[in-house]
Design a protein around this nucleic acid. Sequence first.
DNA 1: GATGAATGAGCATTCATTCAT
DNA 2: CATGAATGAATGCTCATTCAT
Lengths: 204, 204, 204, 204
Amino acid sequence: MSNTSILERRFPGRRAQLKRDILLQALQCFNTHGLEATTIDMIKARCDTSVGAIYHHFGNKDGLVAALFLAALEDQQQLMQQYLEQADSLREGIAALVYSYVDWVEAQPDWARFQYQAHSSVSKGPHGAELARRNAERGKQVAQWLEQREQGAALRDWPAELRASLIIGQSENYCRSWLSGRAGTPPSAYRELLAEAAWRSVSG
Amino acid sequence: MSNTSILERRFPGRRAQLKRDILLQALQCFNTHGLEATTIDMIKARCDTSVGAIYHHFGNKDGLVAALFLAALEDQQQLMQQYLEQADSLREGIAALVYSYVDWVEAQPDWARFQYQAHSSVSKGPHGAELARRNAERGKQVAQWLEQREQGAALRDWPAELRASLIIGQSENYCRSWLSGRAGTPPSAYRELLAEAAWRSVSG
Amino acid sequence: MSNTSILERRFPGRRAQLKRDILLQALQCFNTHGLEATTIDMIKARCDTSVGAIYHHFGNKDGLVAALFLAALEDQQQLMQQYLEQADSLREGIAALVYSYVDWVEAQPDWARFQYQAHSSVSKGPHGAELARRNAERGKQVAQWLEQREQGAALRDWPAELRASLIIGQSENYCRSWLSGRAGTPPSAYRELLAEAAWRSVSG
Amino acid sequence: MSNTSILERRFPGRRAQLKRDILLQALQCFNTHGLEATTIDMIKARCDTSVGAIYHHFGNKDGLVAALFLAALEDQQQLMQQYLEQADSLREGIAALVYSYVDWVEAQPDWARFQYQAHSSVSKGPHGAELARRNAERGKQVAQWLEQREQGAALRDWPAELRASLIIGQSENYCRSWLSGRAGTPPSAYRELLAEAAWRSVSG
DNA sequence: GATGAATGAGCATTCATTCAT
DNA sequence: CATGAATGAATGCTCATTCAT
């Protein structure tokens, strides 16, 4: 799946061609040089467009970062939804969370890299509130899903604050390693191991 | 434990007073405004010194970042050593890794915050090689420690690449949450839970 | 008298509605933000029209400024004519000049503010020649009027260059004060005083 | 008296050489092209210095304008003080105000031109408060001087708001004409006439 | 060693104007 | 006639770094 699929889903149509291209080239620049080191001129040059066009579509550099970040977030969450819908038991739910995380990072490594990189910038910026809201909403959805399956015994009595870390922490840590090149084996090779570790961490 | 203790240990003596002060103020600036947004002049103003003095002591801005990063890294690894030395069984070793991580972040939140923030910058910069070397070395040390206790059966046959993620991933994830303010409960409150989760993830 | 009356007189009819609206909103923008700080987009936004429409009607930004300036100038001179026509003696003529100046500024403060502000810009620009011509013409008219009443004795032998300053200088100075908010009392409250001062300055 | 005398008085010493030069060239640029049309690069080129040096000394473009404006204001007020100190009667005081105004404009035409031009910009900007304070103070001083000589009868009972306009309005109007080239005769040629007109306007 | 004035390449952003639809 | 996306030259300003004193 190429980097453009996310964009075509989010900004469809022929008229948005330039918009998609700007985002795509910006993604590459940000990942290659870093957020601050990327200049508007670098992006402009790669799109063969004008500075004005970039500002016309995205307002400013932060707007560009935010647009990319939210596109990535939405795509990632969509995959999580899909996986979760197909899970029946609690254990399958935990696995769905781990699998969707790992699979998405592997399918969209550039977007994932960007997400890690831009997270603090976006959360401090003017779109930070929206990001927080979306994260809270997703957390609540997942919590509801889990509780509906808990059926009495099930999930150990972990503090709610800790749950997400227990489930996804190990996967995230490994994905960061892989994206940075420190680890060589693609995360999906360890899907089951990671899902099992998460399940053991979380279940009695 | 205040932010200065790390500095006093690493740069002792009265003559290093200014050096320590520059590092301390730089740490605050970097955490408050971000790496790139912090200017030499901001640091200068907080230390009541001159630009020249900063360049005299640290060469350039990257030198300042590297000095802070390595000081933090060393302090963190030292605590890990201490905890590990007192562990006897394999299980205690895993707990030592988790406890030392969690305790250090909680004792030195400003240094931890800085570490997360500066990691990619340092690893890409001229000190990246040294950082990689140190990490590899530490990884080997820990691996040796673990294998000496493995006594045949013990640790499940996880791929080596995955080990660190399984042990520390959950703790790191929660520490990031806490440092950013998303989670309210100090990580040490969950020491045992996190250690137990790590053990279960890793052991048969 | 509202700001629109000048426009309705100069650009009458339903078809000129948009034209009048653009001018009106431009006037407000120029007075609020200054000539240079006002952007075409600001005006566009206030009129709920398009950039293209503004360029269609006025050519460019300078054209907008010139159109406003000339409209103001014409309106002001028209009032002066009216007042002057009703004056019989020399003294009444001087008073007519003062009264018309003061009354116009007070009736059209936004237009007056704009006039002071735009004067140097217009006189340097491509419409500067026309402005100079109009001013010279008006000067000549007034001079003729005065000389027709001089009947021998009358006006002190002031140099012609000085006449306008002696008659209108004090009023202008006070009107500027009032428009800027430094002085609180409306200029018309001082009509007679100002006219008397002008007369004393000018007459033997 | 050249344009530099004001600067040498206000920024004396060899070390301030560059500072004075920047101000001097800025003055010329502002008068030639206007406040907004003058770019930092234009000034830089005329001084053969660097952008950085200008920002080092004056903070930003507004700082440059304010420094020039306040230098001019102080110089002008100093001359007024001198003239006023040598006046004995009320009539001589009025004349001193007129003479000092007219003589200063003629001696420092570039500074006067700049003052007219920059007035609204400075009064709206961050130094506006200081400007207002200085003007109020000067107004009070002059008022005191006048009242000390009033000795009962003297000055007609003009509203205080109007006084400054009556005294200086005509001179200002003519000085503007002369500076803009519309009038050819230097203002000092009309000193006595303007002083007499002011006296007549103001006295019974 | 300490100081801070000076440097100047580099950047984000603006905005009048054009022109294809 | 109207629209608004696209253009791109121009500008104010920043800031790491140097170096004369």
